[in-house]
Write a protein that binds this DNA or RNA. Sequence first.
DNA 1: CTCTATTTACGACGAGTATCGTAAGAGGAG
DNA 2: CTCCTCTTACGATACTCGTCGTAAATAGAG
Lengths: 128, 128
Amino acid sequence: METWMAQPDLDEIDVATVLQALADPTRLRIVRLLDQVEESTCTALDLPVKVSTVSHHVNILRHSGVVSTRIDGTARPSRLRRDDLEHRFPGLLSSILAATPPCAPEPAAPPDRDDRGAGPAPSARKVV
Amino acid sequence: METWMAQPDLDEIDVATVLQALADPTRLRIVRLLDQVEESTCTALDLPVKVSTVSHHVNILRHSGVVSTRIDGTARPSRLRRDDLEHRFPGLLSSILAATPPCAPEPAAPPDRDDRGAGPAPSARKVV
DNA sequence: CTCTATTTACGACGAGTATCGTAAGAGGAG
DNA sequence: CTCCTCTTACGATACTCGTCGTAAATAGAG
């Protein structure tokens, strides 16, 4: 039987907390990496910060409900809670991952350019 | 001809900047209010902070690309850039607004400090 | 048992920022 | 014109938080 670390239940996930968790660049990068490798430990993640800092960020991501962490001996591999987040906030995580250019290998065609319908066009208006 | 304040162009909107803008509770509340009233000035928004602070937050929201501000005499009514955001990050803003109840109580984050718990598997994920 | 590798808890420090009060522009009313 | 309201720019302050180094806890290997 696999053991997991404590994490918020599905209906306990707060959108404000999730946004706060995803607001940090390092944490957003962790989410991007986990989107690619599916599962990884703190030391395996290639990040420009120390491992203790990575552990701190993964904790925040888990407490916010973004990732879940499994206990495997001394290792703590984490993965994205894709289905949970998609069920709770449909389209949120997917749009964030799709819109992230730096490490995204362009999986599919970018969003079609349907020439905005009613959006403000700053260039066509007087801007102060 | 309407005059608008400077704002980032559609393809200049960065998802990390947007997430950082939406991470603040006061700004998220502003977004919620603008979702209901469609357009409002800083003084008209009912918020527990001073007007100068509201203006500061609206500036951040505009620079991140979340809202656009019109110049109407001395007034500066702002509104959500719904179509732009939907076009750039499909499903992001809508999922956030859908997950945020209009009169939601302040989410006091429960101090779930049970990190090393190695507790039972989360009920949402049945593990072996 | 000892030894080592992995992870996290704990302070501590520094940068970023949310908030405020005040004051200065800007535009409408009289 | 003057007066008033709305908005924002500017410091100043307090506080959150991202980062680090160190140490403790855990589990596997020898």
